[in-house]
């Protein structure tokens, strides 16, 4: 599971609170992520491993999304 979290896209999301991340960095990281998950999916034949792996990443992304959305809403409320 760690390999997935070590992908650039996840790293950038985790670093977001410490430094400004540009859209172009994230777009490049998405392209890398797309290539990585496709490659992993082709090479791993055990479906249960694949499903666990991808759901793990999916839930991590959803939790980032919720967190960032809450931050955005808090900023709007302050303004």
């Amino acid at each position: 599971m760690n390999k997935l979290l070590q992908q650039k896209f996840f790293r950038l999301l985790s670093e977001y609170s410490q430094r400004k991340v540009s859209a172009s960095e994230l777009i490049e990281a998405i392209n890398e992520l797309a290539a990585y998950v496709a490659d992993f999916s082709i090479n791993e034949q055990d479906y249960s491993v694949l499903v666990r792996y991808f759901f793990f990443g999916l839930h991590r992304l959803k939790s980032y999304r919720v967190r960032f959305e809450q931050e955005k809403n808090a900023l709007f409320a302050l303004n």
């Binding site: 994230l26 998405i30 980032y64």
Partner: peptide
């Protein structure tokens, strides 16, 4: 962009 990545993993699933 996070939604795009979520879509990516949903597609793989």
């Amino acid at each position: 962009l996070i939604d795009e990545a979520i879509g990516l993993l949903n597609t793989e699933i």
